[in-house]
Design a protein around this nucleic acid. Structure first.
Lengths: 116, 116
DNA sequence: CCAATCTCTGACAGCACTGTTAGAGTCAAG
DNA sequence: CTTGACTCTAACAGTGCTGTCAGAGATTGG
């Protein structure tokens, strides 16, 4: 599929799809004309990138973790650096979830008090 | 307390404390010299700002919610706009938590597979 | 074949946040 | 009172992400 359709399907702007590529997160095939051609697999990758991005990971971090999101099962010897990144980001996500839950509670309590 | 001490205690840079003020999130008293003087209450506000910020809320949003984090119980008629902001941000936080949990699962599964 | 629509690259701009630096003034311990 | 540490304001810089625009080429339906 061409970039416009992928954009429509994924909700990610054409601009950002090209940016993902520029940052090394995607390598779509090209037609002779130069047009990018995305596969269904790439659509899935894009959705995961987006999900991790929304979770607060930087694209550069996501790039390091690409091997993890390209295959469901590891089929290579895990480089210790990737392992470390994985653990670090997992910790960061847990931290962020904790923050969000605290914040949520503060706001929810307040909303409850307001609407009682 | 002066800005440096607050920075040390809260872990927020002096630069950012001044930025919070610039954005209307803090109004510390001033000594005659011009030095900012922070109260213990303000330290708590700063911590909550930080928490909400880490959770992904923009400072501008946090500013709208300030009344909610300044007092534990509402003592005024809730302006409908604040109410709407509150609901909207609560929804956004829920969404973000969902995202984070999904992402966490992807990474955790992969880490599990790698270290098995 | 033609026109409307899409895509390409490259550049510029903007936002939100954060750090750093400079030059001037303040504070506090000795 | 002197000195080193702190603070003030203002400005500039940089990062990460995102939009937009311009000019050229590709695609496709009629």
């Amino acid at each position: 599929m061409k970039i416009g359709e992928l954009s429509r399907r994924s909700g990610i702007s054409v601009r950002m799809l090209r940016y993902y590529e520029q940052e090394g997160l995607l390598q779509p095939n090209r037609r002779e004309s130069g047009y990018r051609e995305y596969s269904a697999a790439e659509e899935q990758v894009v959705r995961r990138i987006r999900m991790l991005g929304d979770a607060g990971l930087k694209l550069e971090t996501i790039r390091h973790l690409l091997p993890c999101i390209l295959s469901d099962r590891p089929d290579f010897e895990p480089c210790p650096e990737v392992l470390a990144t994985l653990r670090r980001e997992l910790g960061g996500i847990d931290e962020r979830i904790k923050c969000l839950k605290s914040s949520r509670q503060i706001l929810a309590e307040y909303l409850g008090a307001l609407t009682r």
